[in-house]
Amino acid sequence: MAIAKKAFVWGLFAAGGTVTAFVFPVLIALFLIVALGIVPEGLRFENIYAFATNWVGKTALFIVISLSLWHAAHRLRVVFHDFGVRMDNAVANAVYLVALIGTVLTAFYLYKI
């Protein structure tokens, strides 16, 4: 049971790490472009709304955000340990709960769009 659980959590971590490595640089770059005062064509309301209404867009957004959240949660759990916090159960519950809340919020907002 313990081994099965570990494989599951680690699988999410690895998948999420790959997703973040591939997608986050371009995601951060988009935020940077917007912050500089430029709104690209595809981020105008009609276009981004059309993208997020489409089930392909919804699926892509959900997979990227949820896997990245679980990746970050698992790594943050280890970071707490590395910084000398030894309450692993409490830390694990807290970080996985935040990842779960983020996943549910993502699904909820995508459902509403």
């Binding site: 999420g16 973040t20 986050f24 995601l27 951060i28 935020f31 309301f45 981004i48 709304y49 997020a52 957004l61 955000i65 990245s68 959240l69 990746h71 970050a72 949660a73 790594r75 943050l76 280890v78 970071v79 590395d82 935040v98 983020g102 919020l105 993502t106 907002y109 995508l110 769009i113």
Partner: peptide, 21 residues
């Protein structure tokens, strides 16, 4: 390892964007 904090920040920033959308 601390890049996980950036991942968390951008995940919730994107969720905020979805809420606005």
């Amino acid at each position: 390892e601390v890049t996980c904090l950036l991942v968390g920040v951008y995940c919730f920033l994107t969720i905020w964007a979805l809420a606005a959308l």
